[in-house]
Protein backbone atom coordinates (compact mmCIF):
# COMPACT_ATOMS: atom_id res chain seq x y z
CA UNK A 1 0.00 0.00 0.00
CA UNK A 2 1.58 3.24 -1.02
CA UNK A 3 0.72 6.66 0.33
CA UNK A 4 -1.17 7.68 -2.77
CA UNK A 5 -1.27 11.41 -3.18
CA UNK A 6 -4.45 12.53 -4.86
CA UNK A 7 -3.63 14.37 -8.07
CA UNK A 8 -5.41 17.63 -7.48
CA UNK A 9 -3.11 18.94 -4.83
CA UNK A 10 -4.65 21.57 -2.71
CA UNK A 11 -2.47 24.39 -1.60
CA UNK A 12 -3.28 28.08 -1.77
CA UNK A 13 -3.09 29.12 -5.39
CA UNK A 14 -0.23 31.58 -5.07
CA UNK A 15 2.00 29.17 -3.26
CA UNK A 16 1.19 26.63 -5.91
CA UNK A 17 2.21 28.97 -8.70
CA UNK A 18 5.43 30.24 -7.22
CA UNK A 19 7.63 27.23 -8.01
CA UNK A 20 6.72 27.72 -11.64
CA UNK A 21 9.17 30.60 -11.74
CA UNK A 22 11.98 28.10 -12.26
CA UNK A 23 11.91 28.27 -16.06
CA UNK A 24 13.29 31.57 -17.40
CA UNK A 25 10.87 31.40 -20.34
CA UNK A 26 7.96 31.21 -17.95
CA UNK A 27 9.27 34.19 -16.01
CA UNK A 28 9.64 36.23 -19.18
CA UNK A 29 6.13 35.28 -20.27
CA UNK A 30 4.70 36.32 -16.92
CA UNK A 31 6.58 39.63 -17.17
CA UNK A 32 5.25 40.24 -20.68
CA UNK A 33 1.70 39.66 -19.47
CA UNK A 34 2.30 41.89 -16.46
CA UNK A 35 3.50 44.72 -18.68
CA UNK A 36 0.52 44.18 -20.97
CA UNK A 37 -1.94 44.48 -18.12
CA UNK A 38 -0.18 47.56 -16.76
CA UNK A 39 -0.20 49.21 -20.17
CA UNK A 40 -3.89 48.49 -20.61
CA UNK A 41 -4.66 49.93 -17.19
CA UNK A 42 -2.47 53.02 -17.56
CA UNK A 43 -2.94 53.73 -21.28
CA UNK A 44 -4.50 57.19 -20.77
CA UNK A 45 -1.63 58.20 -18.49
CA UNK A 46 1.28 56.95 -20.56
CA UNK A 47 0.05 57.43 -24.13
CA UNK A 48 1.73 60.54 -25.57
CA UNK A 49 -1.20 61.37 -27.90
CA UNK A 50 -4.92 60.86 -28.28
CA UNK A 51 -5.05 57.54 -30.17
CA UNK A 52 -7.90 58.71 -32.37
CA UNK A 53 -6.70 62.23 -33.10
CA UNK A 54 -6.32 62.70 -36.83
CA UNK A 55 -3.52 64.85 -38.17
CA UNK A 56 -3.50 64.43 -41.93
CA UNK A 57 -0.51 66.78 -42.28
CA UNK A 58 1.77 64.31 -40.47
CA UNK A 59 0.61 61.15 -42.22
CA UNK A 60 3.06 58.25 -42.19
CA UNK A 61 5.84 60.05 -40.37
CA UNK A 62 8.74 57.74 -39.59
CA UNK A 63 9.83 57.13 -36.04
CA UNK A 64 11.12 60.23 -34.36
CA UNK A 65 11.38 61.84 -30.95
CA UNK A 66 7.83 63.16 -31.38
CA UNK A 67 6.38 59.86 -32.57
CA UNK A 68 8.49 56.97 -31.29
CA UNK A 69 6.83 54.47 -33.63
CA UNK A 70 5.82 57.01 -36.23
CA UNK A 71 2.28 57.71 -37.38
CA UNK A 72 -0.24 55.89 -39.52
CA UNK A 73 -1.85 57.01 -42.72
CA UNK A 74 -4.25 59.31 -40.90
CA UNK A 75 -1.41 60.81 -38.89
CA UNK A 76 -2.37 59.07 -35.62
CA UNK A 77 0.45 58.22 -33.25
CA UNK A 78 1.15 54.47 -33.62
CA UNK A 79 2.55 54.07 -30.09
CA UNK A 80 -0.53 55.66 -28.50
CA UNK A 81 -2.82 53.46 -30.56
CA UNK A 82 -0.76 50.44 -29.57
CA UNK A 83 -1.03 51.27 -25.87
CA UNK A 84 -4.77 51.87 -26.07
CA UNK A 85 -5.11 48.76 -28.23
CA UNK A 86 -3.97 46.69 -25.25
CA UNK A 87 -7.32 47.58 -23.65
CA UNK A 88 -9.65 45.97 -26.20
CA UNK A 89 -6.89 43.46 -26.84
CA UNK A 90 -7.25 42.18 -23.27
CA UNK A 91 -10.88 43.03 -22.56
CA UNK A 92 -12.25 40.94 -25.43
CA UNK A 93 -10.36 37.73 -24.56
CA UNK A 94 -11.06 38.32 -20.87
CA UNK A 95 -14.78 38.29 -21.57
CA UNK A 96 -14.48 35.30 -23.90
CA UNK A 97 -12.44 33.32 -21.39
CA UNK A 98 -14.64 34.35 -18.46
CA UNK A 99 -17.86 33.37 -20.21
CA UNK A 100 -16.53 30.17 -21.76
CA UNK A 101 -14.95 29.08 -18.48
CA UNK A 102 -18.20 29.66 -16.63
CA UNK A 103 -20.18 27.86 -19.33
CA UNK A 104 -17.69 25.01 -19.57
CA UNK A 105 -17.59 24.55 -15.81
CA UNK A 106 -21.37 24.39 -15.66
CA UNK A 107 -21.87 22.02 -18.61
CA UNK A 108 -18.84 19.87 -17.85
CA UNK A 109 -19.63 19.49 -14.17
CA UNK A 110 -23.27 18.62 -14.74
CA UNK A 111 -22.37 16.12 -17.46
CA UNK A 112 -19.50 14.54 -15.57
CA UNK A 113 -21.18 14.45 -12.19
CA UNK A 114 -24.68 13.42 -13.24
CA UNK A 115 -23.69 10.95 -15.96
CA UNK A 116 -26.53 9.12 -17.69
CA UNK A 117 -28.77 10.99 -20.09
CA UNK A 118 -27.63 14.44 -18.91
CA UNK A 119 -24.10 13.42 -19.86
CA UNK A 120 -25.23 12.07 -23.22
CA UNK A 121 -27.20 15.21 -24.13
CA UNK A 122 -24.60 17.72 -22.94
CA UNK A 123 -21.70 15.83 -24.50
CA UNK A 124 -23.47 15.70 -27.88
CA UNK A 125 -24.25 19.41 -27.57
CA UNK A 126 -20.60 20.21 -26.87
CA UNK A 127 -19.48 17.99 -29.76
CA UNK A 128 -21.85 19.87 -32.03
CA UNK A 129 -20.57 23.32 -31.03
CA UNK A 130 -17.03 21.97 -31.19
CA UNK A 131 -17.48 20.89 -34.80
CA UNK A 132 -18.61 24.35 -36.01
CA UNK A 133 -15.73 26.74 -36.78
CA UNK A 134 -15.89 29.56 -34.22
CA UNK A 135 -14.84 32.29 -36.64
CA UNK A 136 -17.67 31.34 -38.98
CA UNK A 137 -20.20 31.59 -36.17
CA UNK A 138 -18.74 34.93 -35.20
CA UNK A 139 -19.10 36.28 -38.74
CA UNK A 140 -22.73 35.12 -38.75
CA UNK A 141 -23.34 36.83 -35.42
CA UNK A 142 -21.81 40.03 -36.75
CA UNK A 143 -24.00 39.80 -39.84
CA UNK A 144 -27.03 39.83 -37.54
CA UNK A 145 -25.91 42.05 -34.67
CA UNK A 146 -23.48 44.33 -36.46
CA UNK A 147 -19.72 44.70 -35.91
CA UNK A 148 -18.15 45.71 -32.62
CA UNK A 149 -16.87 43.85 -29.59
CA UNK A 150 -20.12 42.27 -28.41
CA UNK A 151 -21.08 39.93 -31.22
CA UNK A 152 -17.59 38.46 -31.73
CA UNK A 153 -17.13 38.04 -27.97
CA UNK A 154 -20.40 36.13 -27.59
CA UNK A 155 -19.68 33.98 -30.61
CA UNK A 156 -16.15 33.16 -29.45
CA UNK A 157 -17.39 32.47 -25.91
CA UNK A 158 -19.82 29.92 -27.32
CA UNK A 159 -17.13 28.42 -29.52
CA UNK A 160 -14.64 28.11 -26.64
CA UNK A 161 -17.08 26.62 -24.16
CA UNK A 162 -16.70 23.00 -25.38
CA UNK A 163 -12.91 23.18 -24.90
CA UNK A 164 -13.39 23.96 -21.23
CA UNK A 165 -16.47 21.75 -20.95
CA UNK A 166 -14.71 18.63 -22.20
CA UNK A 167 -11.80 19.16 -19.84
CA UNK A 168 -14.09 19.73 -16.86
CA UNK A 169 -16.21 16.75 -17.85
CA UNK A 170 -13.23 14.43 -17.63
CA UNK A 171 -11.98 15.95 -14.40
CA UNK A 172 -15.39 15.80 -12.74
CA UNK A 173 -15.82 12.14 -13.65
CA UNK A 174 -12.38 11.32 -12.35
CA UNK A 175 -12.74 13.25 -9.10
CA UNK A 176 -16.25 11.95 -8.42
CA UNK A 177 -14.86 8.44 -8.03
CA UNK A 178 -12.26 9.48 -5.47
CA UNK A 179 -13.07 8.32 -1.96
CA UNK A 180 -12.69 11.79 -0.45
CA UNK A 181 -15.55 13.05 -2.63
CA UNK A 182 -17.56 9.86 -2.21
CA UNK A 183 -17.34 10.35 1.53
CA UNK A 184 -19.20 13.65 1.16
CA UNK A 185 -21.98 11.79 -0.62
CA UNK A 186 -22.12 9.20 2.15
CA UNK A 187 -22.37 12.07 4.66
CA UNK A 188 -25.51 13.28 2.91
CA UNK A 189 -24.37 16.47 1.16
CA UNK A 190 -26.25 17.43 -1.98
CA UNK A 191 -24.46 16.95 -5.28
CA UNK A 192 -24.66 20.70 -5.84
CA UNK A 193 -22.90 21.51 -2.58
CA UNK A 194 -20.22 18.90 -3.15
CA UNK A 195 -19.53 20.21 -6.65
CA UNK A 196 -19.33 23.87 -5.67
CA UNK A 197 -17.52 23.53 -2.36
CA UNK A 198 -15.24 20.58 -2.97
CA UNK A 199 -15.06 19.50 -6.61
CA UNK A 200 -14.51 22.94 -8.17
CA UNK A 201 -11.67 24.06 -5.88
CA UNK A 202 -9.91 20.80 -6.56
CA UNK A 203 -10.09 21.02 -10.34
CA UNK A 204 -9.66 24.81 -10.54
CA UNK A 205 -5.88 24.87 -11.17
CA UNK A 206 -6.17 22.57 -14.17
CA UNK A 207 -9.05 24.60 -15.59
CA UNK A 208 -7.09 27.79 -15.00
CA UNK A 209 -4.20 26.43 -17.06
CA UNK A 210 -6.56 25.71 -19.95
CA UNK A 211 -8.13 29.15 -19.63
CA UNK A 212 -4.75 30.87 -19.87
CA UNK A 213 -4.05 29.02 -23.11
CA UNK A 214 -7.53 29.88 -24.39
CA UNK A 215 -6.90 33.53 -23.58
CA UNK A 216 -4.12 33.67 -26.17
CA UNK A 217 -6.21 31.96 -28.81
CA UNK A 218 -9.18 34.22 -28.12
CA UNK A 219 -6.95 37.25 -28.46
CA UNK A 220 -5.77 35.97 -31.83
CA UNK A 221 -9.27 35.11 -33.04
CA UNK A 222 -10.71 38.47 -32.02
CA UNK A 223 -7.79 40.25 -33.66
CA UNK A 224 -8.45 38.24 -36.82
CA UNK A 225 -12.09 39.31 -36.74
CA UNK A 226 -11.13 42.98 -36.35
CA UNK A 227 -8.62 42.59 -39.11
CA UNK A 228 -11.36 41.27 -41.36
CA UNK A 229 -13.54 44.21 -40.36
CA UNK A 230 -16.03 42.27 -38.25
CA UNK A 231 -14.76 43.37 -34.85
CA UNK A 232 -13.91 46.66 -33.21
CA UNK A 233 -14.25 49.38 -35.84
CA UNK A 234 -11.83 52.14 -36.70
CA UNK A 235 -11.02 54.73 -35.55
CA UNK A 236 -11.06 52.91 -32.18
CA UNK A 237 -7.57 51.63 -31.36
CA UNK A 238 -7.50 47.86 -31.81
CA UNK A 239 -4.53 45.75 -32.85
CA UNK A 240 -6.41 43.70 -35.45
CA UNK A 241 -7.99 46.78 -36.96
CA UNK A 242 -4.60 48.52 -36.93
CA UNK A 243 -3.09 45.77 -39.05
CA UNK A 244 -5.92 46.16 -41.51
CA UNK A 245 -5.35 49.91 -41.56
CA UNK A 246 -1.63 49.42 -41.92
CA UNK A 247 -1.99 47.41 -45.12
CA UNK A 248 -2.28 50.51 -47.28
CA UNK A 249 0.65 52.03 -45.40
CA UNK A 250 2.66 48.92 -46.31
CA UNK A 251 2.04 49.63 -49.98
CA UNK A 252 3.54 53.04 -49.43
CA UNK A 253 6.60 51.53 -47.81
CA UNK A 254 5.74 52.24 -44.13
CA UNK A 255 5.98 48.98 -42.19
CA UNK A 256 5.51 50.19 -38.63
CA UNK A 257 1.71 50.77 -38.57
CA UNK A 258 1.09 47.10 -39.45
CA UNK A 259 4.20 45.56 -37.93
CA UNK A 260 3.88 47.00 -34.40
CA UNK A 261 0.41 45.59 -33.64
CA UNK A 262 1.36 42.26 -35.23
CA UNK A 263 4.32 41.97 -32.88
CA UNK A 264 2.09 42.80 -29.93
CA UNK A 265 -0.42 40.09 -30.89
CA UNK A 266 2.26 37.47 -31.35
CA UNK A 267 3.93 38.39 -28.06
CA UNK A 268 0.68 38.23 -26.13
CA UNK A 269 -0.48 34.97 -27.68
CA UNK A 270 2.86 33.27 -27.11
CA UNK A 271 3.09 34.57 -23.54
CA UNK A 272 -0.37 33.29 -22.65
CA UNK A 273 0.49 29.95 -24.23
CA UNK A 274 3.71 29.61 -22.24
CA UNK A 275 2.04 30.53 -18.97
CA UNK A 276 -0.86 28.13 -19.57
CA UNK A 277 1.40 25.26 -20.61
CA UNK A 278 3.67 26.02 -17.66
CA UNK A 279 0.83 25.67 -15.19
CA UNK A 280 -0.45 22.54 -16.92
CA UNK A 281 3.04 20.98 -16.95
CA UNK A 282 3.52 21.69 -13.32
CA UNK A 283 0.20 20.09 -12.42
CA UNK A 284 0.92 17.06 -14.58
CA UNK A 285 4.29 16.58 -12.90
CA UNK A 286 2.69 16.80 -9.49
CA UNK A 287 0.16 14.14 -10.47
CA UNK A 288 2.89 11.58 -10.96
Amino acid sequence: MSAVLTPAVRRPLLRRLRPLGNGPLFTVAVLVLGVLVLVAALAPLIAPYDPEALDLRSSLVGSSADHLLGTDQSGRDVLSRLLYGARTGLLGPLLVVGLSTAGGLLLGTVAGWRGGWADAVLSRLMDLVFSVPGLLVAIMFVAVAGPGLTAPVIAMAVAYTPYVGRLVHGLARQEKARPYLESYRVQGWSGWTICVRHLLPNIAPTVLAQSAINFGYALMDLAALSFLGFGVQPPAADWGAMINDGESALQQGATMPALAPSVCIVLAVVAFGIVGEGIADRLARRER
Binding site: L5, T6, R10, R178, P179, Y180, V186, H198
Partner: peptide, 19 residues
Protein backbone atom coordinates in the same frame (compact mmCIF):
# COMPACT_ATOMS: atom_id res chain seq x y z
CA UNK B 1 -30.46 8.04 4.99
CA UNK B 2 -26.97 9.23 5.85
CA UNK B 3 -27.73 8.97 9.56
CA UNK B 4 -28.77 5.38 8.97
CA UNK B 5 -25.47 4.02 7.72
CA UNK B 6 -22.00 5.54 7.61
CA UNK B 7 -18.92 4.10 5.96
CA UNK B 8 -15.24 4.15 6.82
CA UNK B 9 -13.25 3.65 3.62
CA UNK B 10 -10.37 1.28 3.31
CA UNK B 11 -7.60 3.72 2.51
CA UNK B 12 -7.35 6.78 4.79
CA UNK B 13 -4.73 8.24 2.46
CA UNK B 14 -7.41 9.01 -0.14
CA UNK B 15 -10.62 9.26 1.84
CA UNK B 16 -10.01 12.63 3.53
CA UNK B 17 -10.29 15.93 1.65
CA UNK B 18 -6.66 17.12 1.40
CA UNK B 19 -7.68 20.78 1.49
Amino acid sequence: RARGIQLVFQDPYVSLDPR
